[in-house]
Design a protein around this nucleic acid. Structure first.
Length: 855
RNA sequence: GCCCGGGUGGCGGAAUGGCAGACGCAACGGACUUAAAAUCCGUUAUCCUUUAGGAUGUGGGGGUUCGAGUCCCCCCCCGGGUACCA
């Protein structure tokens, strides 16, 4: 046994990382006869700036759980890969001419090295890379399956076109209608784009959420994104015209209050119904609206605008002639692109009607209680001078054609109105979703090419599956083509195609797929990462799916998770996967902030300008006292923490431990390097406890048994619940207790090492070896606790009078309530306090307290 | 505006409706040392009080309860998401 060795973490960590790699300790076999556990990390985009401390947070969490599960006898799948297509590499290529594949390869190498230095137990044989043609071959294959199922189509969709840059920009590259780079004008230009019909799965995506063990907040965000609403389509006849305007409304009950209509400026009826004298004004407005981006139309302009078309329509419930307007607050893309406006009961319509002096007719008498709570003036509402969107009873709502909903509540009147509309053939009940089809093409080089050829007769030909992958041509000019097409439009040779059978010529699709594509199914490829015959083996899929634990950032709450669920559901319907949902349990790790400093005026001070002394902070130059506060890590604040530096100074084990000890996994929390010091001290103390104590075979004291078994219990339960921070606290308590003595019972030592192993695996392996074991601890048996040792003979019971602590007394936790009461009343202090008082009630909680109510 | 989180010591945080502040950081005192670092021991919510003790205390206000950080109602503040979705 090697004794009194210093805790040389650098050496120990290198030694065990080499050992695991050489022995393929974490290579995962399929079909092992053990319960399976699939833990997935959201794979990173390998950026040029390397890993930041946010990445290892989630990775450490899954790694702890995986190591813990292995020790509990699970067959664990824990893979890692690279989401490596994307804009930054392409922009770098435009600037420097370096091919994105070179940048990507280099960045991946840095990322891999950094991730490996943390000692994660990934099965590196399953590493994937979305830019590898052996991978994207199958991304293309899935696209073909989507296409064949009728879920992929081409549509003319407006894109952010920047004439000055000659390129199409992503939404995030456009700021206030100008390009982020160069501040050039950006206009919306329609282009032919691939769309995926995610709307066909809206209902399934909504229903599927029910069965998932996901944070309620994320599920709610997805529900809102899908945005299901029920209502009715209603037809309004246009006066002096054969046209009808169809509107979608969630409030068919308010038809009697509809005093005007609004069409989206792009609505196809606008041209047909506009009167001669209004034509010029309407056209000008349409032109103006077309220039604005959707964000400008919706987000920024609070003030309502619109113009009257000169046309009138007939309200189907009462025959009233109502004016038809156009306004940009109505979107073509939602519902039917036209609305009936009920200004008395819709805030947007109310604002609009006020501005343009359109009549406002109240048809709901507000629920008095609700109106009072909302601070509404009922009289003003009834007069049409205030808007009421709450509940109430219908008024002024009957006609002579058999519809009378007066005095009905909202729900009932909706139902009655829809029935009446359907009977008269004027409308029908419908369901609508906010969810829109997914714009699936990008005018970029660095993405998956579509396996599609546009033939000269206008037809679309798919690249035969056997000819996949369709690889990216090797080009050297990554500048945009100038036409709005991707740089692929310059790859003449690659573009042209001649059908080998018919001789017909065609041109390849120049769009590429968005970054989402590769990440939509990567969890399936890990299952069978090097299969050249199929995207994955169905039996392996059955064995491993679904993912049991998926950890990643909340920024992917909606899009990535919704898109991946969509593809998964399609693959399920096609019989390629066996589960309806891919990710059973989802956890979002919180953001890690840096510590920042500001002076009294609130001016931020970069961290390298700050001196600290006695727990206070001062400006290096001015000496002014500063306040410390958490803020997002940024280069300008100089508060970015690099994991490499932390590992160099404290080791990977300390880094892992601190990432988890900071607070709950889901919480946003500030990084404080002093905290790393704390957990590092704990590891040093553990090391000393094991290496310096005399390891004996002596019996544990009762107290030691209690601490040992409470520690097993707490670490087991907390690890199970992903409450890693409190598990670590308990291990600290253990070490504090057991390092008091010179002697350390071997059982306790070995048990502790096992509990620590998932958290700080390198030091655990080393200490395990020091105790004379020669196998890796990776598959060691997880300790179990014995309830017997958790029982205490005597516990301190609190005696309260009126809920105020009065005395404390030791007794067995088994003591019966009557007995507790008797003992408590017998305490002199208590008896004194109770003199000349009548005891009204005594509450006895065994093992806890006695509360005496007296007066 | 709406939706989702969250407000607990100097700081990160802990607490099945049952003694608020576990564990860690920082600070202070002490031991060891020629000294420092490291290590070890102790103190540390606030206020009053010499001690003993007392009062206050989980963003604010009400409520339920013998008992509320925890449950209910109202309000304030911070973070994130989203935006005229008819």
């Amino acid at each position: 046994m090697v004794k009194n060795k210093e805790y040389n973490f650098t050496e120990i960590e290198k030694k065990w990382q080499n050992y695991w790699e050489k022995n393929k300790t974490f290579k995962t076999e399929d079909f092992v006869d053990k319960p399976k556990f699939y833990a997935l990390d959201m794979f990173p985009y390998p950026s040029g700036s390397g890993l930041h401390v946010g990445h290892p947070e989630g990775y450490t969490a899954t790694d702890i759980t995986c190591r813990y599960k292995r020790m509990q006898g699970y067959n664990v799948l824990h893979p890692m890969g690279w989401d490596a297509f994307g804009l930054p590499a392409e922009q770098y290529a435009v600037e420097t001419g370096t091919h994105p594949s070179i940048t990507t390869k280099r960045n991946i190498e840095v990322f891999r090295k950094q991730i490996k230095s943390l000692g994660f137990s990934y099965d590196w044989d399953r590493e994937i890379n979305t830019t590898d043609e052996k991978y994207y071959r199958w991304t293309q294959w899935i696209f073909i399956q989507l296409y064949k199922k009728g879920l992929a189509y081409i549509d003319e969709v407006p894109v952010n076109w920047c004439p000055a840059l000659g390129t199409v920009l992503a939404n995030e590259e456009v700021i206030d209608g100008k390009s982020e780079r160069g501040n050039h004008d950006v206009i919306r230009k329609p282009m032919k784009q691939w769309m995926l019909k995610i709307t066909a799965y809206a209902e399934k995506l909504l229903e599927g959420l029910e069965e998932l063990n996901w944070p309620e907040g994320i599920k709610e965000m997805q529900r809102n994104w899908i945005g299901k609403s029920t209502g009715a389509d209603v037809d309004f006849e246009v006066v002096n015209s054969s046209e009808k305007i169809r509107v979608y409304t969630t409030r068919p009950d308010t038809l009697f209050g509809a005093t005007y209509m609004v069409l989206a400026p792009e609505h196809k009826l606008v041209k047909k119904i506009t009167s001669q004298e209004r034509k010029a004004e309407v056209e000008a407005y349409v032109k103006h609206a077309a220039k604005m981006s959707e964000l400008e139309r919706t987000g920024l302009n609070k003030e309502k605008t619109g113009v009257f078309t000169g046309a009138y329509a007939v309200n189907p419930v009462n025959g009233n002639k109502i004016p038809v307007w156009i306004a940009d607050y109505v979107m073509l893309s939602y519902g039917t692109g036209a609305i009936m406006a009920v200004p008395a009961h819709d805030t947007r319509d109310f604002e609009f009607a006020k501005k343009f002096h359109i009549p406002i007719i109240c048809i709901i008498s507000p629920n008095k209680k609700e109106a009072k709570a909302a601070g509404a003036n009922i009289q003003k509402i009834l007069n049409g001078n205030e808007c009421w969107v709450g509940d109430g009873k219908m008024i002024n709502s009957s006609n002579d054609k058999g519809l009378d909903i007066n005095n009905l509540e909202v729900t009932e009147s909706k139902r009655t109105t829809i029935e009446w509309l359907e009977k008269k053939g004027l409308g029908k009940g419908t369901v609508n979703y906010k969810l829109r089809d997914w714009l699936f093409s990008r005018q970029r080089y660095w993405g998956e090419p579509f396996p599609v050829i546009h033939m000269e007769d206008g037809s679309i030909k798919l690249v035969p599956e056997k000819d996949l992958p369709l690889t990216l041509p090797n080009i050297d000019n990554f500048k945009p083509s100038g036409s709005g097409e991707s740089p692929l439009a310059n790859a003449e040779e690659w573009l042209s195609y001649t059908d080998p059978e018919t001789g017909m010529r065609g041109r390849r699709e120049t769009n590429t797929m968005p970054q989402w594509a590769g990440s939509c199914w990567y969890y399936l490829r890990y299952i069978d990462a090097i299969n050249d015959n199929a995207a994955w083996d169905k039996d392996k899929e059955k064995y491993w799916m679904p993912v049991d634990l998926y950890i990643g950032g909340a920024e992917h709450a909606v899009l990535h998770l919704l898109y991946a669920r969509f593809w998964h559901k399609v693959l399920y319907d096609l019989g390629y996967v066996s589960t309806k949902e891919p990710f059973r349990k989802l956890v979002n790790q919180g953001m890690i902030l840096g510590l920042s400093y500001k002076d009294k005026r609130g001016v931020l001070v970069p961290a390298d300008k700050v001196d600290s002394c006695d727990g206070r902070f001062y400006h290096k130059d001015t000496g002014e006292e500063l306040t410390e506060f958490p803020a997002k890590m940024s280069k300008s604040l100089k508060n970015v923490v690099n994991p490499d530096d932390v590992i160099k100074e404290y080791g990977a084990d300390s880094m892992r431990l601190y990432e988890m000890f900071m607070g709950p996994l889901e919480a946003t929390k500030p990084w404080n390097t002093a905290g790393v010091e704390g957990v590092h001290r704990f590891l040093k103390k553990s090391w000393k406890m094991i290496t310096e104590a005399e390891i004996t075979n002596t019996q544990l004291s009762r107290k030691q048994l209690f601490v040992l078994h409470s520690t097993i219990k707490k670490v087991t339960e907390d690890t199970e619940n992903l409450s890693y921070n409190t598990a670590i606290s308990q291990m600290m308590i253990f070490v504090n207790e057991f390092s008091k003595n010179r002697e350390l019972p071997k059982d306790a030592a070995q048990t502790f090492i096992k509990l620590l192993a998932p958290y700080s695996p390198h030091i655990a392996e080393e200490m395990w070896q020091i105790l004379g074991n020669d196998n890796t601890l990776a598959y060691g048996k997880w300790p179990e606790f014995n309830e017997e040792y958790l029982k205490e003979e005597e516990v301190e019971i609190l005696v309260q009078i009126h809920g105020k602590p009065k005395a404390r007394i030791m007794m067995s936790p088994e003591t019966k309530q009557d007995e507790m009461r008797k003992i408590a009343m017998g305490i002199p202090e208590v008896a004194n306090a109770l003199e000349d008082k009548t005891v009204r009630k005594v509450i006895c909680v065994p093992g806890r307290l006695v509360n005496i109510v007296a007066n």
